[in-house]
Design a protein around this nucleic acid. Sequence first.
DNA 1: ATGACTCCCAGTGGGAGA
Length: 254
Amino acid sequence: MRLATWNVNSLNVRLPQMLDWLTANPVDALVLQETKLTDDKFPVAEIEAAGYHVHWFGQKTYNGVALLSRQPALDVVKNIPGFADEQARVIAATVDGVRCIGAYFPNGQAPDSEKFAYKMAWLQGLQHWLAQELKAHAKLVLMGDFNIAPTDADVYDPVAWAGQIHCTPQERAHFQALLDLGLVDAFRLFEQAPKSWSWWDYRNLAFRKNQGLRIDHILVSHALKDAVQACSIDKLPRKNERPSDHAPVIVELT
DNA sequence: ATGACTCCCAGTGGGAGA
């Protein structure tokens, strides 16, 4: 079973690329972030024609998530139960017996901003809900754009980024708290090339210079840890003519 | 360099992203 996450930065713009990517990478489930589409504009027909079931949850201009799956997705949940939120950031469902949670974590903008306070509250809400989800679903995968670089090894210039958004101790503590609930970073289960990133700024020729961050993650529950066969970042779509600034991350489970 | 790009909604610029 292969699962993937991709922040597409507008599904309206990226739909053809996403369909091409699915043809080349026929994963069993794919979660999307930053679809930036209201629900009435979601391209359900095109996705179903590609052979996927799909659930979606969006809003105008910002955020928006979706879950595509070969097999029907059961017990679909949108956003975090118990955390009132006007922003469409989470979609969860059970696919082939695995609880799949796709999430677009808040950016946070800057550590002294109101958006950072929202990010902290959101992370607290996620953590609380996830503890319950893990009790109900031993086999669970949390994946998406976390907007957190968990360690300095996930940052191209840790000195310049020290204390900056994505790298603050508070964000990293929240990431660790998710692991402490009983999750493991699938990417770090394997030896990986140094300077492996999932996001590169559109500016400054950042991709060409490989100046990026690893902020898109796939965390698996302990019950799935031994089933993880591989985890990788697919940089290829970032080389497209009009790429998303994020690359997909893929995990393979037995 | 408090930039650089891309997307969106707007409306001939500005906010947000990360």
